[in-house]
Simulated scan of single mutants.
Amino acid sequence: MIFDTETEEKIIACDPDKIERIILNLLSNAIKFTPSKGYIYVNIYDGQDKTIISVKDTGIGIKEDMKNLIFQRFIQVDKSTSRNREGSGIGLSLVKSLVELHNGKIDLITSIGNGSEFIIELPNTQVKTVNTNPENLQESKNNKNLELINLELSDIYF
């Protein structure tokens, strides 16, 4: 897994828990559908009016006729009882909904055998700052993050 960013810090108006859930879901899918010697790239680009997040893998890819369907609830690319991956089929539907709630959009570039790239665009919206003490929130945030990571990655067996 390779993480890269154009900028070290970008502050935009968003729900950080929802953004984390979006990223964890995309990473979970990338891990499930990328062979053990494959790569997963996470990039963040700072646009003038938007922030772009890309999660790209060298996995199995998605058939062209499934590209628009995978964002629908309960849709799975492989519905057979012998499939190798777990999941309910609501992950990408939830991801799309959460992105849209942030007034953003999500696109998919994919082809069979060449992996997939999910591209999220979020507006660079700003809000008035709220005076909070990050030190008081850090411990509970760490516990919450661990619970969320365990939940999002629960269908991956190592």
Rank of each mutant, 00 (worst) to 15 (best):
T125P: 00
L146I: 14
I156D: 03
N114K: 14
I22W: 10
I23L: 15
S80R: 00
E20D: 11
L122E: 01
D65R: 03
I70V: 09
D15W: 00
I119L: 15
L108I: 15
S28G: 14
D107A: 09
E139N: 15
I112H: 05
N29Y: 07
I75M: 12
D78I: 02
E147I: 06
G47V: 02
I75D: 06
F158S: 12
E100I: 04
N103W: 12
N124C: 05
F3D: 04
I90F: 11
L153D: 03
L98F: 13
C14E: 01
I44W: 06
V77I: 08
N29L: 04
S93F: 14
T129Q: 15
E139Y: 03
Y39W: 11
N142M: 14
S36I: 07
G61Y: 03
A13Q: 12
F33V: 07
K67A: 07
N114L: 01
I2V: 09
I31Q: 05
L94T: 14
A30Q: 00
I109S: 08
I156N: 01
N143Q: 14
K18D: 09
D17G: 13
T81A: 15
V55A: 05
G89T: 02
D78R: 05
E9W: 07
Q76I: 10
C14L: 13
S111W: 02
E139V: 13
Q76N: 08
I19W: 08
K105L: 08
S140W: 03
V130G: 08
G104F: 03
E64I: 00
F158C: 06
L101S: 15
Q48A: 11
S88T: 13
F3S: 03
I120W: 12
E135F: 09
L153P: 11
G87M: 01
D46I: 07
I60Y: 04
Q48P: 06
L26D: 07
I149G: 03
V127S: 09
L146V: 12
S111R: 10
E135I: 09
D57Q: 08
H102D: 11
F118Q: 00
P16V: 05
D155K: 10
S116G: 02
N150L: 14
D49I: 03
L108F: 00
L122S: 03
L26W: 15
Q48F: 09
K128H: 09
E86C: 00
N145Q: 12
T58H: 02
L101R: 12
T5R: 08
N124Q: 09
T34G: 02
L26F: 10
Y39N: 13
E121M: 02
I12R: 04
I22M: 04
I62L: 11
L94P: 00
I19G: 11
N25I: 10
R21M: 14
I2N: 15
L94H: 05
K79I: 06
E6G: 03
I23S: 02
N142I: 12
N124V: 10
I22G: 08
F71H: 13
V77T: 14
E64G: 01
I19Y: 09
K10L: 14
G113K: 05
F74T: 13
T7S: 12
D17S: 13
N43G: 07
T34R: 04
D4Y: 08
P35W: 06
L24W: 09
S80P: 01
V99S: 04
T132K: 07
K67Q: 11
T110Y: 06
G115A: 05
K18T: 05
D65A: 09
